[in-house]
Computed example of a mutant assay.
Amino acid sequence: MLYILVMCPFMLPIGIGIIRFRDTCAEALVFFKERNITSKLEAYELLGQVNTKVFPSIVKGDRSKSVLFEACKLAASLNEMDDPSKMWKMVGDVWVEMLGYAASQCRGFDHAQQLEKGGELLTHVWLLMAHLGISEHFKINEGHGRVKLAVT
């Protein structure tokens, strides 16, 4: 999804995604620079120690659109789960929901353009949803004829 956001933003719903991405990157860079973080392991450990009890809007207002805090809060919630299979089930369910939503919000023209280049995962999800009849783009609610099978 991050790849799509950065490389093919036209495929995602119009909104605040790029602003959130930039603010989150900027906040992460400041966070790591202030603490002189040099490795991924240090970054992971430090983000795991973020106090998720106090909301960032209380500390810095609502100007930033970063989701770094929400990511830390989600990670803390997932780490608190006792059963790893339940955790991965939740992660998988969220990703499927995000993929389905993003795929259905993209215009058919943009999907067609991506198919010329081999297609993105989002486009393949969109096609699968259309094939299974779970896409709003292809639903026919009224006026469709019914086929009657006649056996002779």
Score class of each variant (00 low, 15 high):
Arg20Val: 13
Phe21Met: 14
Phe21Asp: 05
Phe21Lys: 10
Phe21Trp: 15
Phe21Cys: 14
Arg22Thr: 09
Arg22Phe: 11
Asp23Thr: 03
Asp23Met: 07
Asp23Ala: 10
Thr24Gln: 05
Thr24Phe: 08
Thr24Asn: 09
Thr24Pro: 00
Thr24Lys: 04
Cys25Gln: 08
Cys25Ile: 11
Ala26Gly: 03
Ala26Leu: 07
Ala26Pro: 00
Ala26Asp: 12
Ala26Met: 03
Glu27Asn: 03
Glu27Lys: 08
Glu27Ile: 00
Ala28Gly: 02
Ala28Tyr: 09
Ala28Trp: 01
Ala28Val: 09
Leu29Arg: 13
Leu29Ile: 15
Leu29Ala: 15
Val30Phe: 11
Val30Lys: 09
Phe31Cys: 04
Phe31His: 06
Phe31Glu: 05
Phe31Pro: 00
Phe32Glu: 05
Phe32Trp: 02
Phe32Asp: 01
Lys33Leu: 10
Glu34Met: 06
Glu34Cys: 03
Arg35Pro: 07
Asn36Trp: 04
Ile37Phe: 00
Ile37Met: 02
Thr38Val: 06
Ser39Val: 05
Lys40Gln: 07
Lys40Asp: 06
Lys40Glu: 06
Lys40Trp: 07
Leu41Trp: 03
Leu41Ala: 15
Leu41Pro: 00
Glu42Thr: 06
Ala43Ile: 04
Tyr44Arg: 09
Tyr44Ile: 06
Tyr44Gly: 01
Glu45Ile: 10
Glu45Gln: 14
Leu46Gly: 01
Leu46Gln: 03
Leu46Lys: 00
Leu46Asn: 02
Leu47Ser: 04
Leu47Cys: 14
Leu47Asn: 01
Gly48His: 07
Gln49Glu: 13
Gln49Asp: 12
Gln49Cys: 11
Val50Phe: 02
Val50Cys: 02
Thr52Phe: 02
Thr52Asp: 03
Lys53Ile: 15
Lys53Met: 14
Val54Trp: 06
Phe55Thr: 01
Phe55Ser: 13
Phe55Gly: 04
Pro56Asp: 10
Pro56Met: 11
Pro56Glu: 12
Ser57Ala: 14
Ser57Ile: 11
Ile58Gly: 02
Ile58Gln: 12
Ile58Arg: 14
Ile58Trp: 09
Val59Arg: 15
Val59Asn: 10
Lys60Arg: 14
Lys60Ile: 03
Gly61Thr: 07
Gly61Pro: 04
Asp62Glu: 15
Ser64Pro: 04
Ser64Asn: 11
Ser64Phe: 05
Ser64Met: 10
Lys65His: 14
Lys65Leu: 15
Ser66Leu: 07
Ser66Thr: 15
Ser66Ala: 14
Leu68Lys: 02
Phe69Thr: 04
Phe69Tyr: 15
Phe69Ala: 08
